[in-house]
């Protein structure tokens, strides 16, 4: 018999382990979020885009355009840093779709879906864990900016509020990329389409320059671009003079994104064979 060939016998069911009640929706989401955090710890390269990239952007843009745009690099830094903070975190949310696309192709999602847990828990867990990446991005941006001479006029509470607003926005936006991650065929396709959407969102905005010199058609877009609203809100918060309108519009934008894309994403996830 096959047993005789074993060096050590494999014994499995000493006792029956009864199945407890399934975990709550929150508990399942947090457990799956914990999985993503473990993966970040295991593969720290995943954090490159939220650590080195913002450093390069800040240094490059400030010294490249600072003099030309604002007359001095210190003045430009004051203007551009909240913008780059927003850009970095918004770009980081793109990764959600790519990682979801690679992840979902593997057998482990079959296992998750064969468990009696709240269905969207795997999605929500991944999205929540990405919050850690956003926090890293925000801390790096602010740290580099401060080291280079960025001084927010607002209080610490204002700055924290500004960062929180960015995090909420990135979380809301990541539902779009999660949706793309589920419906597109390959991770490469997700990246391509997402980047295509990302350029008009981040560059055609008030992140790098004041839109007043732009042609009318572009200004029309920049003014309605949700990223511009967010950047205006973040700038105003960091300056200690919150622009209630921009903050309000940003939050409405977040709510709209989640309201539209969360159900779409969950539906796509349920259907994914």
């Amino acid at each position: 018999m096959s047993t005789t060939t074993l060096e050590r016998p494999v014994r499995t069911v000493a006792a029956r382990v009864e199945r407890p009640e399934p975990p709550s929706a929150l508990s399942a989401s947090l457990t799956l979020g914990w999985r993503s955090v473990l993966k970040i710890r295991r593969i720290p390269e995943q954090l490159f885009d939220v650590t080195f990239q913002p450093v390069i952007f800040i240094v490059m843009f400030v010294y490249l355009f600072g003099g030309a745009v604002s007359g001095s690099t210190t003045e430009y830094l004051q203007f551009v840093l909240p913008g780059i903070l927003v850009q970095t975190v918004v770009m980081a949310s793109l990764y959600t779709g790519i990682s979801l696309n690679t992840d979902i192709g593997k057998g482990i999602f079959d296992r998750f879906r064969s468990l009696p847990i709240w269905r969207p828990a795997a999605l929500l867990g991944a999205l929540l864990a990405d919050g850690i990446r956003y926090v890293v991005a925000a801390v790096v941006c602010l740290g580099v900016g401060m080291a280079m001479g960025f001084r927010p006029d607002g209080t610490v509470a204002d700055v924290v509020a500004a960062c929180l607003l960015v995090l909420v926005f990135a979380f809301s936006l990541s539902w779009i990329f999660a949706f793309l991650g589920l419906v597109m065929r390959s991770a490469g396709a997700v990246q391509g389409v997402s980047l295509l959407a990302m350029f008009p969102l981040t560059f055609a905005s008030n992140v790098f320059v004041d839109p007043s010199t732009m042609p009318g058609w572009l200004r029309a877009w920049v003014d309605v671009n949700p990223v511009s609203q967010l950047v205006t809100a973040v700038r105003s918060l960091m300056a200690g003079a919150p622009d209630a309108g921009a903050v309000g519009w940003s939050l409405i934008g977040c709510a709209a994104l989640v309201a539209v894309f969360a159900p779409l994403t969950v539906r796509a996830y349920r259907r994914k064979a």
């Binding site: 999985r35 473990l38 993966k39 295991r42 593969i43 593997k106 057998g107 079959d110 296992r111 064969s114």
Partner: peptide, 12 residues
Amino acid sequence: LTGQYASVDEDL
């Protein structure tokens, strides 16, 4: 369920 392809997380 144990699927045909490894249904555990390879990075963990």
